[in-house]
């Protein structure tokens, strides 16, 4: 008898869920809202003078855990400021092995590389997922840019942030530099 009762209770629960609004969506037609920090693909930016912001320093290529970024450094005169500076002659980002860990964005000294806020990145060929330099600059113009860049991420992780409001605990003071942490 108890089995029947529990079975009825289960049926009641499923019936209860049947009258709730569905939580799934018809995916290609309806897209879920993305939070501000949502990030997928990459773009390279221009700086305020209109020049390419990337200096080709290769910090992103070195920090990348799966080594999907290759940067070729070139030095030439800027077309706008007429100053000689570093440029990325070639910049390739292979999304097939990208972890989306955001470390390249964080380490960029000139806020040149940012992430995009596009829903997804399907492709029919592998080459669709390899971002060459023209595609990265194209992304800047054509796609919505993500929230984070190096300055914002660094500000968020500033060891002195919030220190103005002292805590009762002594641990809130900036910790002494770790042994060997200086580089």
């Amino acid at each position: 008898m108890g089995y029947l009762l529990d079975g009825l209770k289960s049926m009641w629960t499923t019936a209860l869920n049947a009258i709730r609004p569905p939580f799934t969506q018809e995916f290609p037609k309806v897209l879920r809202p993305h939070p501000e920090r949502y990030h997928t693909s990459f773009a390279l930016l221009h700086d305020e003078t209109g020049d390419e912001a990337c200096t080709g320093c290769g910090a992103c290529a070195r920090i990348c855990p799966s080594q999907v970024i290759t940067v070729k450094l070139g030095k030439r005169e800027s077309a706008i400021t007429q100053k000689k500076r570093g440029y990325a002659d070639d910049f390739t980002l292979d999304l097939t092995a990208c972890l989306v860990c955001e470390l390249c964005v964080q380490v960029c000294p000139t806020d040149a590389i940012v992430m995009l806020k596009v829903p997804e990145l399907p492709g029919f060929r592998r080459e669709d997922l390899v971002l060459s330099m023209p595609r990265l600059y194209e992304n800047e113009k054509s796609k919505p840019l993500g929230w984070s860049n190096a300055t914002k991420l660094m500000a968020m992780q500033d060891p002195k942030a919030g220190a103005a409001k002292p805590e009762p605990s002594k641990e809130t003071a900036p910790a002494p530099a770790a042994a060997g942490a200086a580089s």
Binding site: D158, P159, G162, A163, T172
Partner: peptide, 14 residues
């Protein structure tokens, strides 16, 4: 609690 989120310098170099 309020306070900093990271002790020491944030990551810049591998």
């Amino acid at each position: 609690p309020e306070g900093p989120l990271v002790s020491g310098k944030p990551i810049k170099l591998p």
